[in-house]
Simulated scan of single mutants.
Amino acid sequence: MNKRHHYLPLQSVIADMVLADNLLDKLGHVLLPAGTCLTPAMIASMHHHDVHQLSILIDDTSEPEPDAAISLQVKMQRLDSLFRHAEKDGPIAKLLAYLQKYRLEEAQ
Rank of each mutant, 00 (worst) to 15 (best):
H48Y: 14
A41L: 09
K75W: 06
K75Y: 00
L8C: 10
D21H: 15
E87T: 04
R78H: 07
L96F: 01
M17W: 06
P91S: 01
P9Q: 01
P33W: 12
R103T: 07
M76S: 06
D67V: 10
L79A: 05
L72W: 04
S71A: 15
R103I: 01
L31K: 07
V30H: 05
D59S: 10
I14D: 00
M76N: 10
K94I: 00
T61K: 15
V13F: 14
E106I: 08
A44V: 11
A69R: 13
F83D: 00
A97S: 06
P64C: 09
D59L: 14
K88Y: 08
R84Y: 07
Y98K: 12
E63F: 13
M1I: 04
A41P: 01
V13C: 00
V18I: 14
H52D: 04
L8P: 11
P91I: 04
F83E: 05
H52A: 14
V74M: 12
P66F: 09
S45Q: 13
N2C: 06
L19M: 00
M76F: 04
P33M: 08
K3S: 05
A44H: 14
I58M: 12
Q100M: 04
L8W: 13
D89M: 05
A41R: 00
L31R: 08
Y98P: 05
M17A: 09
I92D: 02
D80F: 02
D60G: 14
A68S: 14
V30C: 15
M1P: 05
H47R: 15
V18L: 06
L19I: 04
V18W: 09
L82E: 02
L23K: 10
E87C: 08
V51T: 12
E87K: 00
H29N: 02
L96A: 01
L95W: 01
D80P: 01
K3Q: 02
A86V: 00
R84V: 02
S45C: 13
D80K: 06
D60V: 15
H47V: 11
H48D: 13
L54V: 13
L95C: 08
H48F: 14
D25C: 05
N22A: 07
I14A: 12
Y98L: 15
A69C: 10
E63G: 03
R4L: 08
A86G: 00
H29C: 05
E65W: 07
V74T: 11
Q100E: 09
T39K: 15
A97P: 04
Q11G: 04
I14G: 05
K75A: 15
G35P: 07
A41V: 08
H85M: 06
H85Y: 03
A34F: 13
P66H: 12
L54W: 13
P91L: 01
A107L: 06
I58W: 01
L23R: 10
V30A: 11
I43M: 10
D89G: 06
Q108G: 14
G28Q: 01
D89N: 04
K94A: 03
L32N: 09
R103V: 03
T39R: 15
L24A: 03
Q77G: 09
V74R: 15
K101N: 09
A68E: 08
E65L: 14
I14H: 10
L82V: 01
G28E: 03
L82A: 11
V13D: 04
S45M: 13
L99N: 11
H5L: 10
Y98N: 14
V30L: 06
K3M: 00
G35W: 10
S62F: 11
S81F: 10
A20Y: 12
M76C: 06
A34K: 15
Q11C: 03
P64I: 08
